[in-house]
Design a protein around this nucleic acid. Structure first.
Length: 453
RNA sequence: GGCAAGGUGGCAGAGUGGUUAUGCAGCGGCCUGCAAAGCCGUUGACACGGGUUCGAUUCCCGUCCUUGCCUCCA
């Protein structure tokens, strides 16, 4: 299997060749745990989950996704609620993990906490100071950008561009206004650790560099994250890591997922248009959300709206519909078409079209035997995308609405009686009544089947 | 202003230098008491203007428009 990935660094699709032909090291920037994750927070995890599933077919993958439990917004949240910082971080870490699990995102191999790696960070800062890439000033330590001539290579920004575009106020304690903080002092209730530069805490970008190095080595095969992290977060990670590791690249392949828009406006805290996963799951089944993500190629924006949800649900209806009458089917080997689509820069829309091609074959199959064989391939293929995790029975039975089952049962019996008496006017009347309750009826060879409207 | 992505049929959304995406919706059949589901067939597209080419939706240039990043953000 040859995998091609779009590398943000070179802005082109490249053949993926890991450093070790048997192993792959992948690091993805995880959440800052200070509030409920929103739908945008889930896109990356779902995409990288698909990539991980694909990679595991071929390689021994070590997938690391960090938890940032060390950040000023967390302290602010704790302060506002009047609770301990750990209460905030533990609560939202749990919620994040639960939400991801609901969406069928498998756990990464390692989920390190920033607060458990302060030692590694201090060590990295010291190394940078020793090499002349960082300097201390007024209890702060800054990365000295002027010592890294490649600064800006990842996000493709020249120095002039960074300065002309920047609205950062020039700081008196920095040598260059683009220098970023590696260590800063902590006062009051803000947590801190003892360090050679006084009591304080690390700057934002450092944790990823330190943890990536610890668990995966100096150069990663794949580094992933949202496209909005490209600058400055990943640029700064690169600077720190490369200067710490005598110029070795931090990652060979940079993979960035696109954002989710809401009415064509980016969903973000500052826009105040956050859609929480938790709230969404009240109304929508998790697999529908996952399908909605996979409908669009990962690098493009997704516009989130009701039509997308309805569409996604119907796609799943078609997938599950094809295996509905076949009983229990075990997942088989995924189809080559699906694997190839995913291997081509995670082309999930193409992979879905391959799934529907199998559905068509199942529906056209001449025998049950043939259908079942194809269904096994379908499920195995869909599983690679993290779809079709339940049985068709569960999918269609899960009406997910409040219904008076006894009432429907009674109406159903009444209708069957009318039908057997060829009183079709009455039968249709009852069907309408049932449909007004949110349930539709399908008459099949084995009697009527209920479906959600 | 700089950097980057994109404008595909009614909607969503892949892809391609020359013939089919796919899903939903529509239309005509089959099936059904009627429907639904399923099947068969079918309408319908590549922002605009140039250029390269035997031929461009696909490559190049320009125009218009949309979006993201440049500041915490997935």
């Amino acid at each position: 299997m040859k995998i091609n990935l779009y590398n943000s660094n070179t802005k082109s699709k490249e053949l993926f060749v890991p450093i070790d032909s048997k192993k792959v090291a992948m690091y993805v920037c995880g959440p800052t745990v200070y509030s409920f994750p929103h739908i945008g927070n889930a896109r990356g995890p779902v995409i990288f989950d698909v990539l991980a599933r694909l990679l595991r077919r071929e390689y021994k993958l070590t997938y690391v996704r960090n938890i940032t439990d060390l950040e000023d917004k967390i302290y602010q949240a704790a302060d506002e609620e009047g609770v301990d910082i750990s209460e905030i971080t533990e609560r939202y870490t749990k919620i994040y993990q639960d939400d991801m699990n609901a969406l069928g995102v498998k756990k990464p191999d390692i989920e390190p906490l920033a607060t458990e790696h302060i030692g590694e960070m201090i060590e990295m800062i010291q190394g940078l100071i020793d090499k002349g890439h960082a300097y201390q000033n007024q209890d702060h330590v800054f990365f000295n950008i002027d010592t890294f001539s490649d600064y800006g290579f990842l996000s493709n920004r020249t120095e002039e561009e960074q300065i002309s575009g920047a609205r950062i106020k020039s700081s008196e304690i920095k040598k260059n206004q683009r220098d970023f903080v590696l260590w800063k002092p902590s006062t009051g209730d803000i947590p801190g650790w003892e360090s050679p530069w006084g009591y304080g805490r690390p700057g934002w970008h450092l944790e990823c560099s330190a943890m990536a190095k610890k668990y995966l080595g100096k150069t990663l095969d794949i580094h992933g994250g949202g496209s909005d992290l490209l600058f400055p977060h990943h640029e700064n990670e690169c600077a720190q890591s490369m200067c710490s590791h005598s110029g070795k690249p931090l990652a060979n392949y940079w993979v960035h997922n696109g954002m989710i828009d809401f009415d064509n406006v980016k969903m973000s805290k500052s826009e105040g248009n956050l859609l929480l996963i938790r709230d969404l799951l009240q109304e929508i089944r998790p697999e529908v959300i996952r399908m909605a993500f996979l409908t669009t190629h990962y690098r493009k924006p997704i516009n989130w709206n009701d039509a997308l949800i309805i569409d996604s649900e119907k796609k799943l209806d078609r997938l599950y519909g094809s295996i509905r009458k076949l009983g229990h089917i075990s997942p088989g080997e995924p189809s080559g078409g699906v694997i190839n689509a995913l291997a081509d820069d995670i082309n999930t829309p193409k992979a879905l079209s391959e799934l529907f091609a199998i559905v068509k074959k199942i529906n056209n199959a001449k025998s049950d035997e043939e259908s079942k064989q194809l269904a096994s391939i379908l499920i195995g293929s869909a599983n690679l995308l993290g779809l079709m995790n339940e049985s068709a029975e569960t999918w269609f039975d899960d009406l997910n609405i409040d219904v008076d089952e006894a009432l429907i049962e009674r109406l159903l019996n009444e209708r069957e009686e009318a039908r057997s008496n060829k009183d079709f006017g009455r039968a249709d009347q009852i069907r309408q009544e049932i449909e007004s309750l949110g349930v539709s009826i399908e008459d099949g060879p084995n009697g009527p089947v209920l479906m959600k409207n």
